[in-house]
Simulated scan of single mutants.
Amino acid sequence: MNILPIIGKLLIGFIVLLIIMRLMGKRNLAQLNASDVIYLLVFGGIVEESLYDDKIKYWHVLVSLIAWGCIIFLFEYLLYKSKKARFLLKGDKDILMTEGDIYTKVLKYNRLELDQISSIARNYGIFDLSEIKNMYIESHGGFT
């Protein structure tokens, strides 16, 4: 097996992925959401499948990655432009607490336990849950 085609396909995959990530904007990678993980998994699958198959040419990899990048761009553009699409595809924030009252149905819906809420509050320096005016779980899974 010739190693040069494998290196070439990896290089193409890396460069195209880097370009597409730069075009998507400056996001904190620590804030990956479900769609970001899907994007990366498919990118990895495209490059991985092409590496060891001699029938797949360089331009096949390039076209596949560019097409996937266009799909991502269109999806993100739709989410940016349409509030309804953003709500349907990414969800909305949920209020977990108000004035120390804990909404157990919302906790169950989001598969959270009271211990997790207490731990999160401690990370913010709050040791008594009754001190919390409002606590939300955001659509990306973060807490405010």
Rank of each mutant, 00 (worst) to 15 (best):
residue 89 L to W: 09
residue 61 V to D: 04
residue 63 V to C: 10
residue 10 L to Y: 13
residue 106 V to L: 05
residue 115 D to G: 14
residue 52 Y to R: 12
residue 72 I to D: 09
residue 78 L to M: 13
residue 60 H to K: 01
residue 142 G to I: 01
residue 41 L to T: 08
residue 60 H to T: 00
residue 94 D to T: 07
residue 31 Q to V: 01
residue 33 N to V: 01
residue 5 P to D: 11
residue 94 D to L: 05
residue 138 E to N: 12
residue 13 G to L: 05
residue 22 R to P: 11
residue 68 W to L: 13
residue 8 G to M: 12
residue 30 A to V: 06
residue 126 I to C: 04
residue 88 L to R: 14
residue 111 R to G: 00
residue 47 V to C: 06
residue 26 K to I: 07
residue 90 K to W: 02
residue 91 G to S: 12
residue 8 G to W: 08
residue 116 Q to Y: 10
residue 26 K to P: 00
residue 22 R to W: 05
residue 5 P to R: 15
residue 127 F to M: 01
residue 138 E to T: 04
residue 105 K to V: 02
residue 74 L to H: 04
residue 138 E to V: 08
residue 104 T to K: 14
residue 1 M to H: 11
residue 82 S to F: 03
residue 63 V to G: 01
residue 54 D to R: 10
residue 140 H to E: 06
residue 22 R to H: 13
residue 12 I to E: 05
residue 91 G to P: 04
residue 17 L to C: 10
residue 73 F to V: 12
residue 96 L to K: 05
residue 129 L to Y: 03
residue 65 L to I: 10
residue 119 S to P: 01
residue 45 G to W: 08
residue 121 A to S: 15
residue 27 R to F: 00
residue 3 I to H: 13
residue 123 N to L: 10
residue 106 V to S: 11
residue 70 C to W: 07
residue 41 L to H: 07
residue 35 S to R: 04
residue 129 L to K: 07
residue 112 L to A: 07
residue 76 E to M: 02
residue 58 Y to Q: 02
residue 13 G to D: 14
residue 135 M to S: 07
residue 24 M to H: 12
residue 83 K to S: 14
residue 102 I to M: 12
residue 88 L to A: 14
residue 53 D to G: 09
residue 101 D to H: 11
residue 138 E to R: 11
residue 78 L to Q: 00
residue 102 I to R: 02
residue 79 L to A: 02
residue 43 F to T: 15
residue 77 Y to L: 13
residue 133 K to R: 13
residue 70 C to G: 13
residue 8 G to H: 12
residue 99 E to M: 14
residue 141 G to A: 04
residue 125 G to R: 04
residue 138 E to Y: 06
residue 78 L to S: 14
residue 128 D to W: 01
residue 20 I to N: 08
residue 75 F to D: 01
residue 4 L to A: 11
residue 83 K to D: 07
residue 100 G to W: 05
residue 72 I to V: 15
residue 40 L to F: 12
residue 85 A to K: 05
residue 23 L to H: 05
residue 112 L to Y: 04
residue 115 D to Y: 05
residue 136 Y to K: 03
residue 131 E to M: 04
residue 19 I to A: 04
residue 125 G to F: 08
residue 106 V to E: 10
residue 57 K to W: 03
residue 131 E to V: 01
residue 1 M to F: 09
residue 42 V to C: 13
residue 96 L to R: 00
residue 45 G to L: 09
residue 77 Y to N: 03
residue 115 D to R: 07
residue 118 S to R: 14
residue 102 I to V: 15
residue 105 K to M: 07
residue 100 G to N: 08
residue 62 L to D: 00
residue 76 E to T: 08
residue 32 L to K: 13
residue 134 N to D: 06
residue 70 C to E: 08
residue 16 V to F: 06
residue 132 I to H: 06
residue 102 I to A: 03
residue 131 E to N: 12
residue 80 Y to N: 07
residue 53 D to L: 08
residue 52 Y to K: 11
residue 38 I to V: 15
residue 71 I to M: 10
residue 123 N to H: 00
residue 41 L to G: 09
residue 66 I to W: 04
residue 97 M to V: 14
residue 130 S to K: 14
residue 45 G to E: 06
residue 68 W to F: 12
residue 122 R to S: 02
residue 38 I to P: 00
residue 44 G to M: 10
residue 115 D to P: 03
